[in-house]
Protein backbone atom coordinates (compact mmCIF):
# COMPACT_ATOMS: atom_id res chain seq x y z
CA UNK A 1 0.00 0.00 0.00
CA UNK A 2 1.39 3.38 -0.92
CA UNK A 3 2.03 6.06 1.66
CA UNK A 4 -1.06 8.22 1.23
CA UNK A 5 -3.38 5.25 1.26
CA UNK A 6 -1.89 3.93 4.48
CA UNK A 7 -2.11 7.39 6.03
CA UNK A 8 -5.78 7.70 5.09
CA UNK A 9 -6.49 4.21 6.38
CA UNK A 10 -4.80 4.91 9.72
CA UNK A 11 -6.56 8.25 10.06
CA UNK A 12 -10.01 6.80 9.43
CA UNK A 13 -9.43 3.88 11.74
CA UNK A 14 -8.15 6.13 14.50
CA UNK A 15 -11.09 8.54 14.15
CA UNK A 16 -13.71 5.82 14.27
CA UNK A 17 -12.13 4.10 17.25
CA UNK A 18 -11.52 7.27 19.22
CA UNK A 19 -14.47 9.56 18.76
CA UNK A 20 -17.92 8.38 19.67
CA UNK A 21 -16.78 4.77 19.92
CA UNK A 22 -19.04 3.71 17.04
CA UNK A 23 -17.64 0.17 17.14
CA UNK A 24 -18.90 -0.43 20.67
CA UNK A 25 -22.29 1.17 19.97
CA UNK A 26 -22.76 -1.02 16.90
CA UNK A 27 -22.12 -4.17 18.90
CA UNK A 28 -24.48 -2.94 21.63
CA UNK A 29 -27.19 -2.38 19.04
CA UNK A 30 -26.53 -5.86 17.67
CA UNK A 31 -26.95 -7.28 21.20
CA UNK A 32 -30.19 -5.30 21.63
CA UNK A 33 -31.65 -6.69 18.39
CA UNK A 34 -30.68 -10.26 19.31
CA UNK A 35 -32.24 -9.79 22.77
CA UNK A 36 -35.45 -8.36 21.40
CA UNK A 37 -36.10 -11.26 19.00
CA UNK A 38 -36.96 -13.90 21.65
CA UNK A 39 -39.44 -11.44 23.18
CA UNK A 40 -41.13 -11.31 19.80
CA UNK A 41 -41.13 -14.98 18.85
CA UNK A 42 -41.12 -16.58 22.33
CA UNK A 43 -38.36 -18.38 24.24
CA UNK A 44 -38.73 -21.65 22.32
CA UNK A 45 -35.10 -22.83 22.05
CA UNK A 46 -35.76 -25.14 19.09
CA UNK A 47 -37.38 -22.35 17.11
CA UNK A 48 -34.57 -19.96 18.05
CA UNK A 49 -31.96 -22.50 16.93
CA UNK A 50 -33.76 -22.81 13.62
CA UNK A 51 -34.05 -19.08 12.92
CA UNK A 52 -30.85 -18.13 14.80
CA UNK A 53 -28.71 -17.51 11.69
CA UNK A 54 -31.43 -15.27 10.28
CA UNK A 55 -31.66 -13.28 13.52
CA UNK A 56 -27.89 -12.77 13.61
CA UNK A 57 -27.83 -11.72 9.96
CA UNK A 58 -30.69 -9.26 10.29
CA UNK A 59 -29.09 -7.86 13.45
CA UNK A 60 -25.79 -7.41 11.63
CA UNK A 61 -27.55 -5.79 8.65
CA UNK A 62 -29.38 -3.30 10.86
CA UNK A 63 -26.26 -2.51 12.90
CA UNK A 64 -24.28 -1.90 9.71
CA UNK A 65 -26.98 0.35 8.25
CA UNK A 66 -27.10 2.34 11.46
CA UNK A 67 -23.44 3.30 11.35
CA UNK A 68 -23.24 4.04 7.63
CA UNK A 69 -24.58 7.59 7.52
CA UNK A 70 -21.41 8.87 9.18
CA UNK A 71 -19.15 7.26 6.58
CA UNK A 72 -18.76 10.46 4.54
CA UNK A 73 -20.83 12.99 6.43
CA UNK A 74 -18.27 13.97 9.07
CA UNK A 75 -15.67 14.46 6.33
CA UNK A 76 -18.07 16.59 4.33
CA UNK A 77 -18.96 18.77 7.30
CA UNK A 78 -15.37 19.75 8.10
CA UNK A 79 -14.34 20.04 4.44
CA UNK A 80 -12.03 17.02 4.39
CA UNK A 81 -14.08 15.46 1.61
CA UNK A 82 -13.49 18.46 -0.66
CA UNK A 83 -9.76 18.20 -0.01
CA UNK A 84 -9.89 14.49 -0.87
CA UNK A 85 -11.73 15.32 -4.10
CA UNK A 86 -9.15 17.95 -5.01
CA UNK A 87 -6.13 15.86 -4.03
CA UNK A 88 -6.11 14.12 -7.40
CA UNK A 89 -5.96 10.63 -5.95
CA UNK A 90 -8.34 8.07 -7.49
CA UNK A 91 -11.56 8.65 -5.58
CA UNK A 92 -12.62 5.02 -6.03
CA UNK A 93 -9.54 3.95 -4.09
CA UNK A 94 -10.22 6.56 -1.40
CA UNK A 95 -13.76 5.19 -1.00
CA UNK A 96 -12.46 1.61 -0.87
CA UNK A 97 -9.94 2.51 1.85
CA UNK A 98 -12.55 4.40 3.85
CA UNK A 99 -14.90 1.40 3.58
CA UNK A 100 -12.15 -0.95 4.72
CA UNK A 101 -11.40 1.21 7.75
CA UNK A 102 -15.12 1.56 8.48
CA UNK A 103 -15.62 -2.19 8.22
CA UNK A 104 -12.66 -2.91 10.51
CA UNK A 105 -14.07 -0.61 13.17
CA UNK A 106 -17.80 -1.50 12.89
CA UNK A 107 -18.19 -4.69 10.86
CA UNK A 108 -15.44 -6.81 12.36
CA UNK A 109 -16.65 -6.29 15.97
CA UNK A 110 -20.05 -7.64 14.86
CA UNK A 111 -18.36 -10.73 13.41
CA UNK A 112 -16.37 -11.22 16.61
CA UNK A 113 -19.50 -10.82 18.74
CA UNK A 114 -21.57 -13.23 16.63
CA UNK A 115 -20.27 -16.49 18.22
CA UNK A 116 -21.01 -15.10 21.68
CA UNK A 117 -24.53 -14.01 20.75
CA UNK A 118 -25.26 -17.31 19.03
CA UNK A 119 -25.06 -18.95 22.47
CA UNK A 120 -28.23 -17.05 23.38
CA UNK A 121 -29.91 -18.49 20.31
CA UNK A 122 -29.05 -22.10 21.08
CA UNK A 123 -26.88 -22.59 18.01
CA UNK A 124 -24.62 -25.66 17.96
CA UNK A 125 -20.87 -25.20 17.34
CA UNK A 126 -21.11 -26.02 13.62
CA UNK A 127 -23.85 -23.44 13.09
CA UNK A 128 -21.90 -20.95 15.18
CA UNK A 129 -18.83 -21.38 12.99
CA UNK A 130 -20.92 -21.21 9.81
CA UNK A 131 -22.69 -18.00 10.81
CA UNK A 132 -19.43 -16.39 11.84
CA UNK A 133 -17.79 -17.38 8.55
CA UNK A 134 -20.69 -16.04 6.46
CA UNK A 135 -20.75 -12.80 8.45
CA UNK A 136 -16.99 -12.42 7.99
CA UNK A 137 -17.41 -12.73 4.23
CA UNK A 138 -20.75 -10.91 3.94
CA UNK A 139 -20.49 -7.83 6.15
CA UNK A 140 -17.82 -6.17 3.94
CA UNK A 141 -20.35 -6.35 1.11
CA UNK A 142 -22.94 -4.64 3.32
CA UNK A 143 -20.49 -1.81 4.04
CA UNK A 144 -19.48 -1.48 0.37
CA UNK A 145 -23.06 -1.38 -0.90
CA UNK A 146 -24.01 0.92 1.96
CA UNK A 147 -21.26 3.30 0.85
CA UNK A 148 -23.33 4.00 -2.29
CA UNK A 149 -26.27 5.03 -0.14
CA UNK A 150 -24.01 7.02 2.17
CA UNK A 151 -22.55 9.03 -0.70
CA UNK A 152 -25.98 9.62 -2.27
CA UNK A 153 -27.36 11.02 0.98
CA UNK A 154 -24.17 12.82 2.03
CA UNK A 155 -25.58 16.28 1.40
CA UNK A 156 -28.84 15.64 3.24
CA UNK A 157 -29.11 16.72 6.84
CA UNK A 158 -31.18 13.75 7.94
CA UNK A 159 -30.25 11.09 5.43
CA UNK A 160 -29.99 8.12 7.77
CA UNK A 161 -33.50 6.78 7.29
CA UNK A 162 -33.50 7.38 3.54
CA UNK A 163 -30.12 5.64 3.33
CA UNK A 164 -31.59 2.53 4.93
CA UNK A 165 -34.54 2.51 2.51
CA UNK A 166 -32.25 2.93 -0.50
CA UNK A 167 -29.74 0.30 0.60
CA UNK A 168 -31.99 -2.49 1.92
CA UNK A 169 -33.28 -3.70 -1.51
CA UNK A 170 -29.70 -3.90 -2.76
CA UNK A 171 -28.64 -6.06 0.18
CA UNK A 172 -31.35 -8.68 -0.35
CA UNK A 173 -29.06 -11.09 -2.28
CA UNK A 174 -26.37 -10.91 0.42
CA UNK A 175 -28.90 -11.63 3.16
CA UNK A 176 -30.35 -14.55 1.19
CA UNK A 177 -27.01 -16.22 0.50
CA UNK A 178 -25.60 -15.43 3.93
CA UNK A 179 -28.51 -17.04 5.73
CA UNK A 180 -28.89 -19.93 3.31
CA UNK A 181 -25.24 -20.92 3.52
CA UNK A 182 -25.44 -20.82 7.32
CA UNK A 183 -28.61 -22.94 7.10
CA UNK A 184 -26.91 -25.30 4.67
CA UNK A 185 -24.25 -26.03 7.29
CA UNK A 186 -26.88 -26.99 9.89
CA UNK A 187 -29.40 -29.07 7.94
CA UNK A 188 -28.01 -29.62 4.51
CA UNK A 189 -30.43 -29.36 1.61
CA UNK A 190 -27.41 -28.17 -0.41
CA UNK A 191 -23.69 -28.35 0.35
CA UNK A 192 -22.39 -25.41 2.41
CA UNK A 193 -19.87 -24.33 -0.19
CA UNK A 194 -22.39 -23.60 -2.99
CA UNK A 195 -24.17 -20.63 -1.41
CA UNK A 196 -21.00 -19.64 0.44
CA UNK A 197 -19.04 -19.25 -2.78
CA UNK A 198 -21.88 -17.23 -4.31
CA UNK A 199 -21.76 -15.02 -1.22
CA UNK A 200 -18.01 -14.55 -1.79
CA UNK A 201 -18.72 -13.64 -5.41
CA UNK A 202 -21.34 -11.09 -4.33
CA UNK A 203 -18.82 -9.49 -1.97
CA UNK A 204 -16.29 -9.23 -4.78
CA UNK A 205 -18.91 -7.67 -7.07
CA UNK A 206 -19.78 -5.20 -4.31
CA UNK A 207 -16.08 -4.36 -3.95
CA UNK A 208 -16.07 -3.26 -7.59
CA UNK A 209 -19.51 -1.69 -7.99
CA UNK A 210 -19.64 -0.02 -4.56
CA UNK A 211 -16.54 2.19 -4.80
CA UNK A 212 -17.16 3.11 -8.46
CA UNK A 213 -20.81 4.14 -7.92
CA UNK A 214 -20.03 5.78 -4.61
CA UNK A 215 -17.16 7.83 -6.06
CA UNK A 216 -19.39 8.92 -8.96
CA UNK A 217 -22.09 10.02 -6.51
CA UNK A 218 -19.57 11.94 -4.38
CA UNK A 219 -18.22 13.77 -7.44
CA UNK A 220 -21.74 14.75 -8.52
CA UNK A 221 -22.63 15.90 -5.00
CA UNK A 222 -19.56 18.13 -4.90
CA UNK A 223 -19.96 20.07 -8.15
Amino acid sequence: MTGWAMALFRRDLRLSVRIGGSAIVGVLFFLAVVTVFPFGVGPDLNLLARIGPAILWIGALLATLLGLDRLFQADREDGTLDLMLMAGRPLELVVLIKCLAHWLSTGLPLVVAAPLFSVFLNLDPVAMAAVTATLLVGTPALTLIGAIGASLTVSLRRGGLLLAVLVVPLTVPILIFGVSSADAAIHDPVPFMTPFLILCALTLIAAVVGPIASAAALRFAAD
Binding site: I148, L152, L166, L170, V209, A213, A216, A217, F220, A221
Partner: peptide, 8 residues
Protein backbone atom coordinates in the same frame (compact mmCIF):
# COMPACT_ATOMS: atom_id res chain seq x y z
CA UNK B 1 -27.79 11.05 -7.62
CA UNK B 2 -30.94 9.25 -8.75
CA UNK B 3 -29.22 8.21 -11.98
CA UNK B 4 -26.37 6.58 -10.05
CA UNK B 5 -28.85 4.74 -7.84
CA UNK B 6 -31.00 3.69 -10.83
CA UNK B 7 -28.00 2.19 -12.60
CA UNK B 8 -26.78 0.40 -9.48
Amino acid sequence: AAAVLTLV
